[in-house]
Amino acid sequence: MYLDHVVTDGRLVNGARQVVSRRFQYVEVDRCGTASDPGAEPYLGYESPTAEQESQLSGHLDAAWAGQTAELVARDWAIEHLAGPHFESVAAVVQNRVDRVSEAVRVRLESEIRYWDRRTNEIKAQEIAGGKPRLNSGRARARADELAARLLRRRAELESEADLHSSPPTVVAAAVVVPQGLLDQLAGAPPDPTAAADKAETDRRAVAAVMAAERALGRRPTEQEHANPGFDIMSVDPETGDHCFIEVKGHLPRTEEIHVSARQVRQAQNDPERWRLAVVSVPDEPNAKPQVRYLVEPFVGMTMHAAQTNVPLNVNKLLADAGPPS
């Protein structure tokens, strides 16, 4: 499900509070009612069913559990895991800004108020002495009072900006995700139960090999959560503090093509100096050592279609262009 969480402040325009921050979040709910965070763009791996697949699913898909109950579970999960942290992060930023602006306003206006208080007394003394200053003491006092009133108004405005309100998350859209294995089974091609295990083991060995390569370079790698959408490993140079973001693609000897998500391509293009594509050749022999190669700036100059969700890459050509870890 796709949820929307809005934080507003106390400023009113046409009777409505002003939106300070808005955050959208995906939440996955399984048929057992367990909610989880699928990552920033889980739909990149999804496809709409074909007419033939819809026909195959007819009568086999029990979507009753995905009704109101799933929506309530997703909203409750978002309140606990999305709304609170989002509100706290926004509140910290807003309060810091309001404090800085309030102090700057106080310093400036109180300085001007003191100036006109002093000028009022000086002009009043001249008037008592029989002088005729160009500005009379009444107008000088009025300016000091106006500045004091402006200071009060500005403080009230800033306090209203810091008066944040967290609205309950709302469900914007929802979809039922059907596993590819079910479609294969209905089509008469039951999935190979060893395929998922082989892929998981290949990925595990590939990530472990890249972690070892990073340590050999003197960096400190940290494996990211499986749902992290942009990269698998974040590695830090302890001397410079520089970060490297590494997406790991492990492949078996028979693998001809790997895929990189559109999000990963965009992240690599936005941060080309720090993003790496690690292509890891994993042997079939369980005790054999995988070979790690890096591609730096692999997507410079690449243009994707707006509807493109992933980029297919030929393994042999990647290996020809890749070099040792760096």
Rank of each mutant, 00 (worst) to 15 (best):
residue 6 V to M: 06
residue 6 V to E: 10
residue 7 V to E: 01
residue 8 T to F: 02
residue 9 D to E: 03
residue 11 R to Q: 12
residue 13 V to N: 04
residue 15 G to K: 10
residue 15 G to P: 08
residue 16 A to Y: 04
residue 17 R to S: 01
residue 17 R to V: 00
residue 23 R to E: 13
residue 32 C to D: 03
residue 34 T to F: 04
residue 35 A to F: 01
residue 36 S to H: 02
residue 37 D to I: 02
residue 38 P to L: 01
residue 45 G to H: 05
residue 51 A to L: 14
residue 53 Q to C: 01
residue 55 S to W: 14
residue 57 L to R: 10
residue 60 H to E: 14
residue 60 H to Q: 14
residue 61 L to V: 09
residue 61 L to D: 08
residue 64 A to F: 08
residue 66 A to V: 00
residue 66 A to Y: 00
residue 67 G to E: 05
residue 67 G to Y: 03
residue 69 T to S: 11
residue 75 R to W: 04
residue 78 A to M: 04
residue 78 A to W: 02
residue 79 I to D: 09
residue 79 I to M: 14
residue 84 G to H: 06
residue 91 A to D: 06
residue 95 Q to K: 09
residue 98 V to N: 00
residue 101 V to Q: 09
residue 101 V to R: 12
residue 102 S to F: 02
residue 105 V to C: 06
residue 105 V to I: 08
residue 109 L to F: 04
residue 109 L to H: 02
residue 113 I to T: 05
residue 116 W to N: 02
residue 117 D to H: 14
residue 120 T to C: 03
residue 124 K to P: 03
residue 124 K to A: 15
residue 124 K to C: 03
residue 129 A to M: 11
residue 130 G to C: 06
residue 130 G to P: 05
residue 133 P to V: 06
residue 138 G to D: 14
residue 139 R to K: 12
residue 140 A to N: 03
residue 140 A to G: 04
residue 143 R to Y: 01
residue 145 D to L: 09
residue 146 E to N: 13
residue 147 L to A: 07
residue 149 A to T: 12
residue 149 A to Q: 14
residue 149 A to F: 02
residue 152 L to R: 14
residue 154 R to F: 07
residue 154 R to Q: 12
residue 159 E to S: 13
residue 160 S to D: 12
residue 169 P to D: 08
residue 172 V to R: 15
residue 174 A to T: 15
residue 177 V to K: 08
residue 180 Q to A: 11
residue 182 L to R: 07
residue 184 D to Y: 06
residue 185 Q to H: 09
residue 185 Q to L: 13
residue 192 D to G: 00
residue 192 D to R: 06
residue 204 R to F: 00
residue 204 R to N: 06
residue 205 R to M: 03
residue 207 V to C: 10
residue 208 A to S: 12
residue 213 A to M: 05
residue 215 R to E: 11
residue 216 A to I: 05
residue 217 L to Q: 13
residue 220 R to Q: 10
residue 221 P to L: 01
residue 223 E to R: 15
residue 224 Q to F: 02
residue 225 E to Q: 15
residue 226 H to L: 11
residue 227 A to D: 13
residue 227 A to C: 05
residue 229 P to C: 10
residue 232 D to I: 01
residue 233 I to D: 05
residue 240 T to L: 05
residue 240 T to G: 03
residue 248 V to K: 12
residue 248 V to M: 12
residue 251 H to A: 11
residue 254 R to E: 15
residue 254 R to L: 09
residue 257 E to K: 06
residue 261 S to Y: 06
residue 271 D to G: 04
residue 271 D to H: 15
residue 272 P to I: 07
residue 278 A to S: 10
residue 279 V to R: 02
residue 280 V to H: 00
residue 287 N to S: 14
residue 290 P to I: 03
residue 290 P to R: 00
residue 292 V to E: 04
residue 292 V to P: 03
residue 297 E to W: 06
residue 297 E to S: 15
residue 298 P to Q: 00
residue 299 F to T: 02
residue 302 M to E: 13
residue 307 A to Y: 12
residue 310 N to D: 10
residue 312 P to S: 01
residue 325 P to T: 10
residue 326 S to K: 15
